[in-house]
């Protein structure tokens, strides 16, 4: 009993801060979704009747799924190499992971523009090498948005995966090999399952983070790849359809909780986030 009380004491400061400074003001805003333009669920009906809103949500979902899958695979490889690298190589890799974090998301987006546009460095290099005749459309579409987003998300995926892999007991793996399992078997049967909590944690983090992504799609999408955050932004800043904007935001929050719930049925969330 005492243990439970002390646990809640540890939680209290964060809960208080987030509750008062985050949820209170947020709740007041989300309430707008059933208040404006008139009280009722009219805004939510748009989810089923408005083709543009459905289209925006689908585009967002598609880009987020691609981004999360690509990020997870690449981040897993990096974290794996990182875990097994010698200290010097490890430091160097860490440098590569951490350095991009110091570039403002705005600067990064424009760096990608310089690299990927029609007459950008990548296309010019490829044409120079004779690999292609016509410049590839790498920018101002979903490809460009995905490249930019994967780049942003990679450190977010690598760091938790690495933290999870570091803690895998090397002796377990050695035992597996010692008992005659091949390297592949050991990886698939022992290492992968042990790293799974990290994978799910990182995947969830990357996915929900991508859902609300705003600046990168706005700059790299050529104005046409409209993701949900940008749509909401326009509703709030320009067209003043606050009811619609907050309705979509509420829907996102509900989606995330549904996702967490579904995950908790598939895997034990307790193994996912701490505890046993």
């Amino acid at each position: 009993m005492n243990d439970r009380r002390s646990a809640w004491l540890l939680i209290a400061p964060a809960l208080l801060l987030v509750g008062v400074v985050y949820f209170l003001p947020l709740a007041r805003v989300l309430a707008i979704s059933v208040m404006e333009p008139e009280p009722g669920l009219g805004n939510y009906a748009l989810l089923f009747t408005s083709a543009p809103i459905q289209r925006v949500l689908l585009t967002t979902l598609r880009i987020c799924v691609f981004t999360t899958s690509i990020t997870l695979v690449l981040a897993y490889v990096v974290a794996y190499v990182l875990t097994h690298a010698r200290p010097t190589a490890q430091r160097l890799m860490m440098l590569g992971v951490l350095l991009p974090l110091w570039m403002s998301v705005l600067v990064r987006a424009f760096a990608w523009v310089t690299l990927l546009r029609r007459q950008g460095l990548v296309n010019n290099a490829l044409i120079g090498m004779g690999a292609i005749d016509e410049p590839l459309a790498l920018m101002w579409n979903e490809i460009g948005v995905t490249i930019g987003m994967v780049h942003y998300m990679l450190p977010l995926g690598i760091l938790p995966l690495w933290a999870a892999m570091r803690d895998i007991d090397g002796r377990v793996l050695a035992a597996s090999r010692g008992l005659g399992a091949s390297a592949t078997q050991t990886f698939v049967r022992v290492f992968l399952p042990l790293s799974l909590p990290g994978v799910i944690g990182a995947g969830l983090l990357v996915f929900i983070f991508s859902l609300g992504f705003f600046i990168t799609p706005a700059i790299l999408g050529g104005g046409k790849t409209i993701m949900v955050a940008e749509y909401i932004n326009v509703q709030i800043h320009e067209s003043l359809r606050w009811g619609v904007g907050t309705m979509i935001a509420s829907t996102l929050v509900a989606t995330i909780f549904a996702l967490m719930f579904a995950l908790s049925r598939l895997v034990d969330l307790r193994t996912l986030f701490g505890a046993k």
């Binding site: 543009p52 925006v56 409209i226 749509y231 067209s239």
Partner: peptide, 14 residues
């Protein structure tokens, strides 16, 4: 303006 701008944005989005 309010209505027709939204139609324009929706055209881009869909």
């Amino acid at each position: 303006y309010a209505r027709t701008r939204q139609e324009f944005l929706d055209m881009i989005a869909s």
